[in-house]
Computed example of a mutant assay.
Amino acid sequence: MTTSLPPARTPGQYAVALVCLGNICRSPMADVVLQQRLGAAGLDDRVSVASCGTGDWHVGNPMDRRAAATLTTAGYDATRHRAQQLDASWFDRFDLLLEMDRSNLSDVRASTTEPDRAMLFRSFDPVDPGSEVPDPYYGGDNGFQEVLAMVERTTGALVAALTQHLTQGTERT
């Protein structure tokens, strides 16, 4: 499966935003994993990543303790995250906005003049493309483990797509 990326706003660079509802579970988990994978791929100087929520309930707070514990156990650094809210500036700063579920996708697309820059995060999932990342907030620890497995798998494919986009001349300006 090949999902094409929207064109970069700045040649040779790419900016990815990860979006969920409150920015304390799914999108920060994806943010942490994606940043680590980009570093391992040698793309951290060419691809910037941030996460946000469509709601403002948790702005300034660290990620959910269960999300942080799941990441830490898996060897990721979950300490730097502070929740942010999506605002109009994100639409100009990011080449791609990846939403965790269809509700977030609908909200983001309705708020931008470039709806093609928004797509589901799992559009890149090699196992179940186009599915949603379920919100683990109201469930148990197993939900966070499941989200991490989806995020890791999808992030691997996303890094491959970004690598191809940036190194094989497929970016358009």
Rank of each mutant, 00 (worst) to 15 (best):
M1A: 12
P115L: 14
L148G: 00
P115M: 13
L96C: 12
D77M: 03
I24Q: 02
D125A: 01
D95R: 02
A78I: 02
N23F: 04
R9S: 07
H58I: 07
R46H: 14
P126W: 08
W90K: 04
G169V: 01
A160P: 09
W57N: 04
E132K: 00
L166Q: 01
T113M: 08
L158D: 13
A8W: 08
P134R: 07
S131P: 00
A74P: 14
E146H: 10
Q164R: 14
G139I: 10
E152W: 13
R37W: 09
G39S: 15
E132F: 00
D87K: 05
M29W: 08
L43R: 08
E132V: 03
D107N: 12
A69M: 03
P126I: 06
V147D: 01
L98N: 03
L43M: 11
Y76L: 00
V133Q: 05
P129S: 02
D135V: 03
H165I: 06
S51T: 05
E152A: 11
G22A: 12
D141A: 10
E99N: 15
V159S: 09
S89L: 03
F144N: 02
R37T: 07
Y138I: 13
D128Y: 01
V108W: 11
A67V: 08
G130Y: 06
R117K: 11
Q168K: 09
G55Q: 05
D87R: 10
T113W: 13
G156E: 15
L96I: 13
T72V: 02
R66T: 06
P136C: 04
R65L: 05
A17P: 07
L105Y: 01
P11I: 09
R122T: 05
T70D: 02
T173V: 09
S106N: 13
V127W: 06
T167W: 13
V49P: 14
D64F: 04
D128Q: 10
M1C: 05
A17Y: 14
G53M: 02
H165V: 02
E99C: 15
R109W: 13
R109L: 12
E99R: 04
S131R: 01
M150I: 15
A17I: 06
E146R: 03
G140H: 06
Y76H: 15
L18P: 14
P11H: 07
C25G: 12
M150C: 10
F121W: 03
D64N: 06
L148D: 07
T167M: 08
V16L: 07
A15I: 05
A118T: 02
D44Q: 12
M63W: 01
Q168C: 05
D101A: 00
M119E: 02
S123E: 12
A118S: 11
Q84A: 13
V159Q: 08
R102N: 10
D135I: 00
D31S: 09
G156L: 01
G42L: 08
R80C: 07
G39H: 09
S51Y: 03
G130A: 03
E152I: 12
A50C: 14
V16Q: 05
R122W: 06
Y76S: 04
P62N: 03
